[in-house]
């Protein structure tokens, strides 16, 4: 019955059905890889997942002791302590996400040389596993904010999601770019370490942009700074204002921790307000600048990755 055998062959699937199946397969694979990586991060440690909570808490304690308790620094905003904590966990997410995703391709050489699937899945999975930790940490901040300061989270929580998406897309864009280059040039690993140090100070983790602007104002008012100094300052502030990490940190703080957010005041204005508050800086183009930066970064990252992905298997 050779005809019967032929008929039993799976007929070639037509239309979008196989595409949907393929998409489902890749989505499932991405999640499976992300969950595995999240699990593996905490195996072989006595405290396990508890570390994902303990780490930011300890970092917070150290920073709080040094800056608030010891040096009596307060940037003038309310609840500096919890603001600082929020800044730290946001930064930790960005730093961990880019650092671990950068190696996603190089450290999975075996998988890439022996199985086919879109290579970006590995980078997305690595970044997602950092995102899980971040989300858990955010919940902790919420809980502390509600318990300690009676902050009413309420409906404002909705504004958190677009900000998280923005930050995640930025981190993913950078991860795609770095992981693609890292395959051939491990130099980018060291370079990125140094750059992150710079970014940390330029992201308003310790001090809000408002604080920096106030200091500049103050310096100008008491004549401590010259015009040259001022233009220098303005340049730094302008660059900082373009930084999407600073913008998301500011806006997250504004969305979550401002005591009573008037409904008229849109969430994203946290960052905008700070920029506009700086009177000498007459630059309205700065307001959307962080978003433009995110779009640019993710575009360049994705294009670089796509161009290089086809030769990963040969170059690893």
């Amino acid at each position: 019955m050779s005809a019967g055998a032929d008929a039993a062959l799976p007929t070639e699937a037509a239309g979008s059905a196989p595409q949907r199946a393929t998409f489902r397969h890749y989505r499932h694979l991405t999640l499976e890889l992300a969950i595995t990586q999240f699990k593996l991060r905490y195996t072989q440690s006595a405290l396990g997942y508890f570390w994902s909570l303990l780490k930011p808490a300890l970092l917070f304690a150290i920073n709080y002791l040094i800056f608030v308790d010891l040096f009596k620094i307060n940037d003038g905003t309310q609840f500096y302590g919890i603001q600082l904590l929020l800044g730290i966990i946001t930064w930790t997410f960005f730093a961990e996400c880019t650092a671990s995703s950068m190696q996603a391709i190089a450290s999975n050489a075996g998988l890439i040389r022996k199985a086919y699937f879109p290579r970006s899945i590995l980078v997305i999975a690595a970044s997602l596993s950092s995102l899980f930790t971040f989300l858990i940490n955010l919940v902790i901040v919420f809980v502390i904010a509600v318990l300690l300061h009676q902050i009413d989270i309420g409906v404002r929580i909705v504004f958190v999601f677009p900000l998280l998406l923005e930050l995640y897309v930025l981190a993913l864009g950078i991860s795609l770019f770095l992981s693609a280059l890292f395959v051939q040039y491990h130099d980018v690993g060291h370079l990125w370490d140094v750059l992150m140090q710079l970014l940390f100070y330029g992201s308003g983790v310790m001090f809000s942009l408002t604080y920096v602007l106030q200091r500049v104002h103050l310096a100008l008012a008491i004549g401590q700074t010259t015009e040259i100094h001022n233009s220098h300052f303005a340049w730094i502030v302008e660059v900082m204002a373009c930084n999407p990490i600073m913008q998301t940190v500011e806006d997250l703080r504004h969305a979550l921790l401002t005591p009573v957010a008037p409904w008229t005041e849109l969430v994203v204005t946290g960052h905008l307000a700070a920029v506009h508050q700086y009177a000498t800086l007459d630059a309205p183009w700065l307001a959307p600048a962080p978003f433009v930066v995110v779009i640019l970064v993710v575009t360049i990252g994705a294009l670089t990755f796509r161009a290089r992905a086809r030769s990963f298997a040969e170059n690893l």
Partner: peptide, 19 residues
Amino acid sequence: VGFNPELTARENIFLSGAI
């Protein structure tokens, strides 16, 4: 392909199966 020595047989089945 995709087996991870740190995972149990069960976990590896789900991970490698996903691939």
